[in-house]
Design a protein around this nucleic acid. Structure first.
Lengths: 337, 337
DNA sequence: TTGTACGCGTTATCAA
DNA sequence: TTGATAACGCGTACAA
């Protein structure tokens, strides 16, 4: 049987309110009885009931994290950053993955609502677009991570990587290496992150006076297979690209694989730049030149932002956080022959 | 302001118990008033309070997952399997990472206790050894994942990969390829998983009539750096090993890196077998021969086991689950020249 | 078929 | 300094 403060009160011969005060170190209690009560509590193996406490205190000290999947090399460190910062501030994390399934996403939000979390962090998905309404009505602060929403409502704040900036860095790097025919394998068409990277790519081209050629842009979805499928068509073009910017590292890894099968040497025949700098970008062959996103830190910042939203009045001003990635040059790019 | 069943009751002109019954589809309520109440509830944006409900129902439909870190390519899919099965059964997951820090591990357990989770899954760590007592006193079912505990107590059940079997497969594979000098780079000395893999390694050698040579066993810790540090010493031995079994894939990846620096060709000069089959084992060069563990399924099984423990009487018999990995032959091993 | 009253484990207010 | 009592939001035995 679980022991409650009433049980302790009975054992100590005092009222349950005295026990409550003693355990929360109220100055109103004699040092003597306080020690006595604490001893009994320890002996009986008492653990406070956070549910009951939260009911009267009006806060659960719990946040919800909605993620498409944690089995994603990019997301895991982000979640780690969130959990770590949460812990340091006395909060715990309820994790819900939605698997890009709208129904599950909705179920997750409802679950978090009924658990009365103090705030929610939603990571990359189309939530911003489709479920904005629902998220707005959730009644607690919501932070969107890596998910740009056009019309940030009253409860919506975002931590996003600067996609455009990163894509520009990547493309500029290829240009500086002498490449002129530079292809782009895109990510999911409905993600704003893809739009941002595409824009950065175009911008860098324009700045260098290189015409944008739509044939050099291949559709993709951010997964490895997309990279594998996209490469052959690009290499079949009359004028082959010599540089390639990929939506993300997973795509780039797929490209590397396809390149090996096609007998295309990277970086001799083709220079490749990824995006994300996932853990394994440096372990593959050749080690991947990419745009690093500080994943752990992004998680920390998102949680920090959520905490200030939770603590402040709901209309205190907070500017959204835009994190700049940086170029990591490894061995998948080289000067054009 | 949050709306409660009392608010709905007031709006509908009934008592709060009628509302409660109507919302839980009690057959005692007129279809008419039931519909009426449900409509009002929807209009007012009502969401049931899981805390209050759990207080009276005696269950939270929440489980805790303690992990050393999610930013671990092996753990992420496992957690995904847990979360997925939890969701399908109407449970949610509180995630706590302990970072191999005993204090944090303890804090995590206490937090989960106060949140009154219905059960806990603890993944790979020394918990089994050090905190067995504490976990036993937690008062709810505990499932240990990939963590062998010698003295499974009343509440402790385990889902473990068969380390010995996997290590035997790996070593036998090298032996069948003609290797006789086979080294082992160990994992954390205090992990039972390391003991199991070491034992499987010795067993395979013995079965093949190959003497065990302690010089061929290097210390490690399961991280990439350990693999990088261990290789030079092994290759400095008078009689170099031609085969190498690594505690896990991360160690093997470190070895591959060191090998490249030392000018050792894999698999020509050295055949390497890893353990885990993490997502990137097939992407590195050369693609790694390894022992695959069904991570997602392990998570599913652990959650399933926890669910039956939660539902059954606490002393119903459940045999621990031992999952056999299988050998995945890729390109890091070849017949001895 | 519905309402009243109680309890779940806390904290907080008011008296004593 | 301590104790009764109310309140948080909900489910349910019992009475009507």
């Amino acid at each position: 049987m679980r022991v409650s403060i009433k049980d302790i009160a009975r054992a100590a011969g005092v009222s349950h309110s005295t026990v409550s005060r003693a355990l929360s170190d109220s100055p109103l209690i004699t040092a003597e009885t306080k020690a006595q009560i604490k001893r009994i509590a320890r002996e009986m193996g008492y653990t406070p009931d956070a549910r009951a406490r939260s009911l009267v205190m009006g806060e659960t000290r719990t946040v919800g994290v909605v993620v498409t999947t944690i089995a994603d090399p990019f997301m895991a460190p982000v979640v780690q950053g969130i959990e770590s910062t949460a812990y340091e501030n006395g909060y715990s994390v309820i994790l819900a993955s939605a698997n890009s399934d709208p129904a599950r996403e909705l179920a997750a939000v409802e679950m978090l609502q009924s658990k009365r979390v103090d705030g929610v962090i939603v990571t990359a998905s189309r939530v911003g677009a489709l479920y904005q309404d629902h998220l707005g009505r959730i009644g607690v602060p919501v932070v969107l991570l890596n998910n740009h929403s056009e019309q940030s409502g009253r409860y919506l704040y975002t931590v996003t990587v600067d996609n455009q900036h990163g894509a520009r860095l990547a493309t500029q790097h290829l240009i500086e290496l002498g490449h002129r025919r530079i292809a782009y394998i895109a990510g999911p068409a409905d993600h704003s992150s893809n739009a941002g990277r595409m824009e950065g790519y175009r911008q860098a081209l324009t700045e260098a006076g290189i015409p944008f050629i739509s044939d050099l842009v291949a559709q993709g979805d951010g997964k490895m297979d997309a990279g594998m499928r996209a490469l052959p068509a690009l290499m079949d073009l009359a004028e082959r690209p010599t540089g390639l910017f990929c939506y993300n590292d997973m795509t780039a890894i797929g490209v590397l694989r396809a390149a090996r099968q096609l007998g295309i040497d990277v970086p001799r025949d083709l220079s490749i730049v990824g995006f994300d700098d996932i853990a394994f970008a440096s372990f593959i062959t050749p080690p991947l030149t990419t745009i690093a996103q500080p994943q752990f830190e992004m998680g920390q910042q998102a949680m920090q932002m959520l905490l200030t939203r939770i603590r402040q009045s709901p209309d205190a001003p907070i500017s959204d956080i835009l994190i700049e990635g940086k170029l990591i040059v490894r061995e998948s790019t080289r000067r054009r022959a």
